[in-house]
Amino acid sequence: MNNILKELQKDLLHLPRTHPKRRAVAIPAMQALQAELGYLDDAAIEKIAQITGLSTTEAEELATFYSLIYRRPAGRHTVRICDSVCCSMRGADQLLTAAEEYIRTPLGTVTPDGALTVLPGICLGLCDKAPAALVDGEALGPLNDASLKALLQRLQQKD
């Protein structure tokens, strides 16, 4: 974590003169820390506040506003299943039920082996692949119960 922070602080020093407020790096800093840690714990929020000059509360407020910034632990692999209109019309609701049954843990939490977090997401811009999911940032679709279960199984076995 320290390396990332050092880099960020170095970046801040070298920002162009015209670059305005330090708080503009809050989201990129959160994204960088999350890439390293998997989620932002309280210590990470404190660090963000230090770098950006925001209060801890302001940093917390920003982090919790965004759906792609995690304040709770996430699995090694995240699967966001779209539950918006086009995917829903093509079976997303059943997919979410099937996923929850398969992982035996509520949506949005981590499986006991630490491998998976499955959660519903808003329209992923994959309506032409409905029902679709974003798996570690990669678009997948159209999915059905069988292909989703096979995918979850594969991810559980992967590092």
């Binding site: 918006s84 209109v85 086009c86 808003i122 329209c123 811009g125 994959l126 309506c127 032409d128």
Partner: peptide
């Protein structure tokens, strides 16, 4: 920042 359900042109 395309997020409008049904829209995927910008992608």
């Amino acid at each position: 920042d395309e997020s409008e359900p049904g829209t995927f042109k910008d992608r």
